[in-house]
Amino acid sequence: MARARRGARASRAGAIPYLYLAPAIALFCFFVAVPIGYTVYLSLRRAKFSGLGLGKGSRKEIFVGLDNYRAAISDGEFWASWVRVLGYAIGVLVLMLGLALVFALLLDSATVRFGRFSRIAIFLPYAVPAVVATLLWGFLYLPSLSPIHDLLEAVGITGVDLLGPGTVVFSMANIAIWGGTGFNMLVLYTQLRSISRDYYEAARIDGASEWAIALRIKVPMLVPAIVLTTVFSIIATIQVFSEPVTLRPITNALSSTWSPLMKVYRDAFVTGDLYSAAATSIVIAVISLIPSLGFLRLVRRRAFGEDV
């Protein structure tokens, strides 16, 4: 008897945390688990037509196992899009995070002027939605409208096509860097402000220059924030979508499958093949996880002092 009652009380206490968790769990189920489950379900199916496919009942949805995955993985264009995006991502990551770090260190240095204004000015592009930013820059890249072309001509460079096959990647990277630097700078800058000023004072007493303080103290202490911004940026850049899709109508140099996500969009919403799109998006999710997890693993011990 007594034992049973204690058991009941324990289980009642045990239920309370779940009650608190219930809203989060419900939201997670509705907005994460169920959509992912449905995507997996769709990815195993396909529409099958018979004859002309026009009469009633000529369209059936059938189970095809892993066929869609096989098709996604064996599509050469899909891997070519990964190569394009990786090249783009490396360029964007290095430049964007490099700039963010430089700006954060500059803003944090003792001799900065107009710090508040600069901070806001650098951050502001992040508030512009990617599509708007791309339209804006896209118009700037068009020869007859662009002051960039006028400037280039003024210094004697003519005939530059900023939307040509060799240049459009850089034009796109420029948009991503313009839009993303501010956010990353802010994360790094916030972390810098939380470092105790005592370290710098001690360093100065020891005769360290501002350079040495930045390189020997600030950067090492920033590593966790740098890791965080890198992981987020890796995920965001390999999922590049808005920039190429928005630029595509004004250039002949971007195909409908330029980036892996664009292929998903094309399959789902242009050619109406939701099933292939579902399979491809699962493949993309898995591939995106690899560099992010890999990078985290690589730096985990150094950044967070955890054991691997």
Binding site: L52, N252, S256, T271, G272
Partner: peptide
Amino acid sequence: GPNVNVAYSAYKDAFDKAVQS
């Protein structure tokens, strides 16, 4: 036909490329 969307999408990709190169 029943997949004009596929043909039209392929047209844009193929002729973009042909024009470009």
